[in-house]
Design a protein around this nucleic acid. Sequence first.
DNA 1: TATTGTTATACTCTATAACTATA
DNA 2: TATAGTTATAGAGTATAACAATA
Lengths: 156, 156
Amino acid sequence: MAVDKGEAWAFAGRIMTMGDALSYRLRRAQHAVLQDFVETFARLDLRPTDFAALLLIAGHPGLKQSEVAEALGIQRANFVAVIDGLERRRLAERRREGSDRRVQALFVTDAGQALLDQLIPVWRAHEERLVARLGGPAARDQLDLLLERLYDAPAA
Amino acid sequence: MAVDKGEAWAFAGRIMTMGDALSYRLRRAQHAVLQDFVETFARLDLRPTDFAALLLIAGHPGLKQSEVAEALGIQRANFVAVIDGLERRRLAERRREGSDRRVQALFVTDAGQALLDQLIPVWRAHEERLVARLGGPAARDQLDLLLERLYDAPAA
DNA sequence: TATTGTTATACTCTATAACTATA
DNA sequence: TATAGTTATAGAGTATAACAATA
């Protein structure tokens, strides 16, 4: 491809669009993966955040709401509706049990644990579908590494 | 894969959380990159979609609204506000010029082109910042390849 | 009938400020 | 004063239905 002259936004001989942007590819990939996830869990009426919260609380019983929210990367204010929903469905529960009566300690109920036991294989299948698209476990590990560099790196 | 008993959600001997999920890493990475992008362009009051639209129209003058919307991956209904904004600021314009009087052909104005000429280096700097985080151009190419596999692949 | 641009609407996610009860 | 949880609210981004003009 030649072509240029005059148009300073052309680079290395070709017209640039956001298709050349990493942010664009990330957005497309994230959207595709999210769709697969949502479709996988839709029939169970569980959104990604619900599942992530259940999984985290099951692995670390007694975590505070604000700790779970932070680990999930959402505002504690926005986590209230999430835990409200899980509690209403009797999948998780809040308990004021420490000496500090401000904190809500979180636990997964037996029903929540039973649901998780069902869901883990479904999630694993979802992950394996993605690994297959990527070309195998080695490719997945490579992708994990690269993605981590993007968000672990100091903000420039 | 052995290990299980009782807690079926523990796998390979460790507690699983969404931190092990590809969707989670993608979300984090996409968020980090988007933040860098937004901060880079914030002082110019240009959001990612504005920039992407300008760039695309500049490279392909006369595109229809619906074509730009589709290329950008947004609904044509939601693109109306985007092009409204660009037109109000005299960066792009709509023209009914074909034989089909339903279509709006889009063009970048001189002011829009001048802004783009300023913006391209800023965008390039943003991309180079990301490449540096990734570890170099080879890593970026590798990431591009992997991301494309995620969204180009048939939906399973 | 079908399509282009448009309007209206709704739903999710995210972000912020301010309140309450505790500490 | 400060903190945990909560409420309310506002802004993006996204998705769908329906309409007018035109084909």
